[in-house]
Write a protein that binds this DNA or RNA. Structure first.
Length: 963
RNA sequence: GCCGGGGUGGCCGAGUGGCCAAAGGCGGCAGACUCAAGAUCUGCUCUCGCAGGAGUUCCCAGGUUCAAAUCCUGGCCCCGGCACCA
């Protein structure tokens, strides 16, 4: 559709105030929202999926006569807008291209270097885009999370949660940039320039005492292997630094000490060459053994503490290093000791067997097993395989822990070391992580972090009934939700640093973290409209005010007029509970659970949310997540939204979302698929335009078309009610066109029946492709289609008889094709006449009797059938034919399902369809006979084959009809 | 490792005991229309048969049932989440 037509209708909806949720007491309501987008950049085709679904559902409910509220806001909190502004300032090429695509004038760009301005600007751009796809979102609710009134609301929320015992303070290990403070390390790299896929590795440090009282801290992932330590490795040509912690004096590399200070406090002391220690002995904890310190060129001083313990029996790298050592040093090391075994009994795979069987130490076998690999990756691969196997299947063999599983032994040793003091955990990233501003991100202990106590069993118990009652789409999400909640733990809810957000009311040095400030906002939207209309002022949004509005507690805020306060509360109580929260699958593990948590704690059960709808992503080729770089008018694989709307149109893209695949599935962005949707829409428009008419043309066909329409309307409503957009789209955009085509093919022509179907169809189109619906609805001049009632099944009279007739004919066609196809494939000429023989009425009785026997679980008995036939006046005459028929049909009946089809006058239907059969299947002549009258017209004796509902037929080949 | 979700025709994807050789879409083949292409429409698209029939299929192997894609048992494989990320 041309963009100006789309805009025309969008303006018409706006003039009609359709988007604004109007409270109508006593009427059902529907409150749905899409999890608000963050302000990280411009939206692309992937972002609109949720809104396209939400809008279709909202429009459906509106047409059902419900009051509908779909609010909209943007989530400006956190770092994304800060980052975006930074990139505008840096003139980042990707962002510059986006600004060009959006047509942002240069003068405007300077303003966007301010994070709050950037967030507001992006929010406005989102509103424009939503308007352009025809989504009706309530303008009176529009907010950003950095607005003053929203902050007042969030402050109240946290005050309430604190009063309810949901907030606590404690120590926490956080990913931390020395400049920006806490940053998020995740694959989206919102806060980072690199390293988003890094994992956190947690080392245990094992203390090795020197004679002089100092302790060398070796970092390891496998503390249980201290029973097999042969020596310590310190890096070549590096220095060691003293770490003073408590009363202890420890040694590690400079990087290691920095990490220890970050995570455990204390301070760094003097530095000296590592070589000073080489050759000296240390004492192994727990065993009391003495082992030498040796210099290892392979040790990376920046990893862990920079000091490692050598366990050559089980660590391939140590085995290699030991072998490469000069003989004198090697002689000083303790002999390697095997300290665990993998029992061979437990069904090992061939590749596992080779690590267990054979000569040498486990580490040597592991190295032998990876001989084929390139030098560089050999040690890593051997380590990976051996560690995994030993961890999963290994049993300790050292006397102290004989028979204990390795994973169990690891925990025990770590606990023993910790209990003895002098052992510290050290966490670090598996690869370098760099902040947007270029600084390395480290892991640091934050002693006074604020938490929300989601791990609290009491809170989880409050949540359980809410989860139990919740509806989810897809339903699998509801099934996994209890497990998600089960392992949910306390989450930090505040940060320090350059974040957008609300200052934490209990401790204003902190800013509330962006997930925590978006768990309850859906309650605030109904209130927001009073602020935007000026009836409430920010200063009036006090805790007392909100206590009254949301919980009905206390006298309320004295500066707010009592009537206004009552009205706000009524507004909230009208729209709540939320009917549907729609979001992408990225929300499943965090956002949706905390949204439920907060509601469970702050509201009574009757106001708990009713449903969650999770949709998949629009992905790039091969399922790759869409990255900003790909969204570009120049060379990008994903078009910017403006370009996509220009190329295809709003309805076309909306239909693409609804029709292509199910909503919970990821969808690979594919322009060809959008083309398909667009083409389908054109066909829909053509059929709808040509289907208008009046007058009765063919009563029987019209009855069938109306009956089919009855069915479609019933099913479309059921699909929308079940939040099945894909199912609804298929009915409206595939089934209905097929119906009309069949109707015309059968000889129906434009008239009252098609006209009636089209009139309803236009309304069926309105939820998913509203612009087209309006365009087609105009001639009816009944006002906007969006405001008309959704079609009701009773508008179309059902006719089981008419449907049975069509099904009968389809079955006949199917049989005919099965016979015709092979002949035409052989290139034979088509028949010159088709002769049908309709089954004699007695066959219906016989089949019914056999069916009764089958329903009783018996094999139909000829004896019984014959007995009944003898006493039946109509059948006595056919006693000679019955046995043959029973024998032929009984086995068929057993595998056929029972049918409740109404009886069809087969002769009449076939005779009426003669013209159709001639046209459709190319028979020059069609003749229809009753079985009993057909003897003269049945040279091949086919008429016996006739069964009720399945007439026999004879296709006369050219030249075959001798007589 | 822990937890969760899955394996359906060339591809995507419906389908939870009989109307299922399995919706719908895509792709492919053929025909109609057209000067032609595109679009559109019609038919076909597991194997065999070539008069409406038969056989073998829904990851694999067993089992329950008159009847299994669907239920049960075991196995193999894939995907997601695992934490501060909206």
């Amino acid at each position: 559709m041309r963009p100006e037509r789309a805009r025309h209708w969008q303006e018409a909806w706006a003039r009609a105030g359709l988007a604004t949720g109007q409270r109508r007491e006593g009427h059902p309501k529907y409150y749905a929202l899409v999890a608000y987008p963050g302000t990280s950049g411009f939206l692309h085709v992937g972002h609109l999926r949720g809104f396209a679904y939400a809008d279709a559902l909202a429009r459906y409910h509106r047409m059902r006569g419900e009051a509908v509220l779909v609010p909209f806001g943007v989530h400006a909190s956190g770092l994304p807008a800060v980052t975006f502004a930074q990139r505008v300032r840096d003139d980042d090429p990707v962002v510059r291209q986006q600004l060009d695509d959006q047509g942002v004038p240069p003068a405007e760009r300077a303003r966007l270097t301010d994070p709050a301005e950037a967030a507001r600007y992006l929010g406005e751009s989102y509103r424009t885009v939503l308007g352009a796809i025809g989504a009706l979102v309530d303008p009176s609710t529009y907010l950003t999370t950095i607005d003053d009134d929203y902050r007042a609301f969030v402050r109240w929320q946290f005050g309430r949660l604190h009063a309810a015992g949901a907030v606590a303070q404690g120590a926490y290990f956080s990913s931390f940039c020395p400049v920006d403070g806490a940053v998020a390390v995740d694959p989206s790299e919102t806060d980072l320039s690199s390293g988003g896929d890094a994992e956190v590795i947690r080392y245990t440090t094992v203390p090795f005492r020197l004679d002089d009282g100092r302790t060398l801290l070796a970092a390891t992932l496998r503390p249980e292997t201290l029973y097999g330590v042969t020596n310590l490795w310190v890096p070549d040509r590096t220095s060691l630094t003293v770490w003073h912690h408590g009363s202890g004096t420890y040694l590690a590399t400079a990087a290691g000490v920095a990490r220890l200070v970050d995570q455990h406090g204390g301070h760094a002391g003097q530095t000296f060459p590592a070589s000073d220690l080489v050759g000296r002995d240390v004492e192994v904890p727990l065993t009391g053994d003495r082992v030498p310190i040796l210099s290892g060129s392979f040790v990376d001083p920046s990893v862990g503490t920079g000091v490692v313990m050598s366990v050559p029996a089980h660590a391939p790298a140590d085995a290699e290093a030991l072998r490469a050592l000069d003989p004198t040093s090697r002689a000083r090391a303790k002999a390697p000791r095997v300290l665990l075994e993998v029992p061979e009994s437990s069904g090992l795979s061939a590749s596992e067997q080779e690590l267990v069987r054979g000569e040498g130490l486990p580490a040597e076998r592991a190295l032998a097993a990876v001989r084929a690999l390139a030098e560089a990756e050999r040690v890593d691969a051997a380590t990976e395989r051996l560690y995994r196997l030993e961890y999963v299947r290994g049993r300790m063999t050292v006397p102290e822990l004989a028979g204990v599983a390795v994973r169990e032994a690891r925990d025990r040793i770590a606990a023993q070391l910790e209990a003895a003091g002098s052992s510290f955990s050290v966490q670090e990233f598996s690869k370098p992580v760099r902040c947007r501003n270029g600084h390395d991100v480290v892991i640091r202990r934050v002693p006074d972090q604020w938490f929300l106590r989601y791990g609290d069993p009491g809170w989880k118990a409050e949540l359980a009934p809410l989860v139990e009652r919740l509806s989810t789409w897809p339903k699998e999400y509801g099934e996994e939700l209890p497990a998600v909640v089960d392992w949910f733990q306390d989450r930090p809810c505040t940060r320090r640093g350059r974040w957008l957000g609300t200052p934490f009311p209990l401790d204003p040095g902190w800013v509330i973290e962006p997930i925590a400030d978006s768990t309850f906002y859906m309650a605030y939207y109904p209130v927001r409209r009073f602020v935007s209309s000026g009836r409430l002022h920010v200063a009036q949004l006090t805790d007392r005010f909100f206590d009254f509005v949301f919980r009905g507690e206390g006298p309320g805020e004295p500066t707010v007029d009592r009537a206004v306060a009552e009205e706000v509360r009524a507004e909230f109580r009208y729209w709540y509970p939320l009917d549907l929260n729609i979001g992408g699958k990225e929300h499943k593990r965090v956002h949706f659970p905390v949204f439920l948590y907060t509601h469970a704690r702050l509201l009574p059960p009757e106001l708990w949310p009713k449903g969650i709808f999770v949709h998949g992503w629009i992905t790039g080729p091969a399922g790759a997540k869409i990255s900003k770089k790909e969204v570009s008018s120049k060379g990008g694989r994903i078009p910017p939204l403006g370009a996509a709307l220009e190329r295809w149109g709003a309805d076309e893209i909306r239909l693409y979302y609804a029709l292509t695949g199910s909503s919970s599935q990821d969808l690979e962005w594919d322009p060809a698929q959008v083309d398909v949707a667009a083409g389908r829409l054109e066909e829909v428009e053509r059929l709808a335009r040509e289907g208008r008419g009046g007058g009765t043309t063919s009563p029987e066909l019209d009855a069938w078309l109306r009956s089919a329409a009855h069915r479609v309307v019933t099913e479309v409503r059921a699909a929308f009610d079940a939040v099945d957009l894909h199912g609804a789209a298929e009915l409206v955009y595939v089934r209905v066109p097929n119906l009309l085509r069949r109707y015309y093919a059968r000889g129906g022509s434009v008239g009252a029946a098609t006209g009636q179907l089209v009139a309803a169809w236009v309304r069926l189109l309105a939820p998913i492709t509203p612009h087209l619906a309006e365009e087609l609805g105009e001639p009816d001049s009944g006002g906007l289609v969006a405001t008309r009632p959704f079609p009701e099944p009773h508008e179309f009279e059902p006719s089981p008889a008419a449907e049975a007739r069509e099904r009968f004919l389809e079955r006949v066609e199917e049989d005919l094709r099965a016979v015709l196809r092979p002949a035409s494939e052989r290139g034979e000429p088509g028949p010159e006449e088709a002769i049908f023989y309709v089954a004699a009425p007695w066959k219906r009785h016989v089949e019914a009797w056999m069916r009764e026997a089958i329903d009783r679980g018996e094999v139909p008995s000829l004896k019984e059938v014959m007995a009944r036939a003898s006493s039946h006046p109509e059948l006595t005459a056919y006693r000679a034919e019955i046995p043959k028929y029973v024998q032929r049909v009984a086995p068929l009946l057993r595998t056929e399902p029972p049918s409740s089809e109404p009886e069809v006058n087969e002769v009449e239907v076939l005779r009426d369809a003669e013209g159709y059969l001639v046209r459709r299947l190319g028979f020059p002549r069609v003749a229809v006979y009753r079985e009993s009258e057909a003897e003269a017209h049945d040279p091949l004796g086919r008429r016996d084959r006739a069964r009720p509902g399945r007439p026999a037929f004879y296709l006369v080949r050219p030249g075959q009809r001798s007589a």
